[in-house]
């Protein structure tokens, strides 16, 4: 599992960690039931405060991506495929929102944006 922390990013550190672990789960690189490193181990490896890694895990737990089992550790939730798909769709919507904002800032029309999207979609 790869986690990279940027100190020049304006995103809080715990958010960077939570986001990257989430991506690993959504891409299926972390399977349901798989164990995650302990918050202390993760903090040592990334040279961060335990509070930061703890908060990242709390965030992921709240969103249902991981579960902590008292005394045993933290594991990727065994959620069904439908739920994950729904979450990915929501994430995609969010990204599209950013694209639309950026397009408007560049005074792109919807038609122009659709055209650009179609082109990229066909290429992919």
């Amino acid at each position: 599992m790869k986690i990279l922390i940027s100190y020049s990013s304006k995103d809080p550190l715990y958010e960077q960690i939570a986001r990257q672990i989430k991506e690993h789960i959504l891409r299926g690189e972390l399977a349901p039931g798989e164990a995650l490193p302990s918050i202390r181990n993760l903090a040592r490896e990334l040279q961060l405060s335990v509070i930061t890694t703890k908060r990242a895990y709390e965030e992921l737990e709240r969103e249902g991506f991981i579960e902590s089992v008292g005394g045993k550790g933290t594991f990727v939730s065994g959620q069904n495929g439908e739920l994950i798909r729904e979450k990915r769709l929501r994430a995609l919507e969010h990204k599209l929102g950013e694209i639309v904002t950026e397009s408007k800032a560049l005074s792109l029309t919807l038609a122009e944006l659709q055209e650009m999207l179609a082109l990229i979609y066909e290429e992919g």
Partner: peptide, 12 residues
């Protein structure tokens, strides 16, 4: 030294 401290604190 900081790495040593991080090791120590693995014990909660």
């Amino acid at each position: 030294v900081l790495e040593i401290l991080a090791d120590i604190i693995q014990d909660e």
